[in-house]
């Protein structure tokens, strides 16, 4: 078997809020083009991991390596870590240490995009505008950082037309083209969820982090969402990192599942392996009666 092409490597990640340890010494990796699921009971620290990866939190300790273009060489990672820089060019592509980068740069340069557990669209802007804002950095360069665009010089018109075309292609896939000029806040809940994913994809990410995309969807919408996420990974080659409570979604589309409980990783492997792991079953369903009796006996001794 060829060595796994890892796009995201999380090593010894810890996040403390005062005395509370939300994530404790977590290590896992996500392979390029795979769908990796992060599951666990409520309060296990899944969203905290997301916030660390996407720069919304500065982790207390640990290293998060994002590698574009191919697997990272351990030597390169070590050299980058020692140099104190945020990013370096390697023979294959680029390497980023996400824990050193501010949030917007993680999206703009390291190509990690995310969605939110509670939908964060721009409700007062139209559906189309939401998708255009996502292409901000490319358009900003095309408009000569506003100067050229203001006076109508340069290629801004063409760049904007391209941006609209990209947005249009996503709207066609979502079946939302007819709603393009409506306020995003006026869309149905399920459409808002899918639009948020499309908006994240419009930033051109290599890794897409989805925080509970199926929350609040009915079974039909949830099954459509599965196909949508799968097509993102297959057709675009975008790796997906997924937090999800809906086990039917997780087990069906994930290539790999990482299970967290109280900020600690308790299992990591294929969906089948994780489903049958006694620790995972215990975390989700509680332990069996004889196990409780054993534990009580141990304490009594």
């Amino acid at each position: 078997m060829a060595p796994r092409d890892v796009v995201l490597e999380v090593e010894h990640l810890s996040m403390r809020f005062g005395g509370l340890v939300a994530v404790n010494d977590l290590s896992f990796s996500a392979a390029r083009g795979d769908i990796t699921a992060l599951i666990g009971p409520n309060g296990a620290g899944k969203t905290t991991v997301f916030n660390c990866i996407t720069g919304f939190y500065k982790p207390t300790s640990g290293r998060i390596t994002m590698s574009l273009g191919g697997p990272a060489e351990p030597n390169d990672v070590a050299a980058l870590t020692a140099s104190g820089n945020r990013a370096m060019r390697t023979a294959r592509g680029q390497l980023f240490l996400l824990e050193r980068m501010p949030d917007y740069e993680i999206t703009a340069r390291a190509k990690v995009a995310r969605t939110f557990q509670n939908i964060r669209l721009f409700p007062g802007m139209t559906v189309l505008e939401n998708l255009i804002v996502a292409q901000h950095n490319a358009l900003m360069i095309a408009s000569g950082y506003t100067v050229k665009g203001l006076f109508g010089f340069g290629s801004y018109q063409r760049a904007e037309a391209d941006a609209v075309a990209l947005a249009r292609s996503w709207l066609d896939r979502l079946g939302l083209t007819a709603r393009a000029d409506d306020a995003a806040g006026a869309l149905a809940y399920g459409d808002q969820r899918r639009l948020e994913i499309a908006r994240a994809m419009c930033t051109g990410p290599e890794l897409l982090c989805l925080d509970e995309p199926a929350a609040g969807l009915n079974p039909r919408e949830s099954s459509e969402l599965k196909d949508f996420i799968r097509s993102i990974a297959r057709d675009h080659g975008t790796s997906v990192l997924l937090i999800e409570h809906d086990m039917s979604v997780v087990m069906e589309i994930s290539d790999k599942v990482v299970v967290l409980e109280y900020g600690i990783k308790i299992a990591d492997g294929s969906p089948e392996a994780v489903r049958n792991d006694p620790k995972v079953i215990a975390a989700y369903l509680g332990v069996e009666d004889d196990a409780v009796a054993e534990a009580e006996a141990e304490i009594a001794q």
Partner: peptide, 21 residues
């Protein structure tokens, strides 16, 4: 222009703006 749309996006949701780079 992108800067104007970014202003309005900022008014709508600053965190979402940061997540979009």
């Amino acid at each position: 222009l992108p800067v104007g749309r970014a202003w309005e996006a900022l008014r709508e949701d600053e965190i979402a703006c940061r997540a979009l780079g």
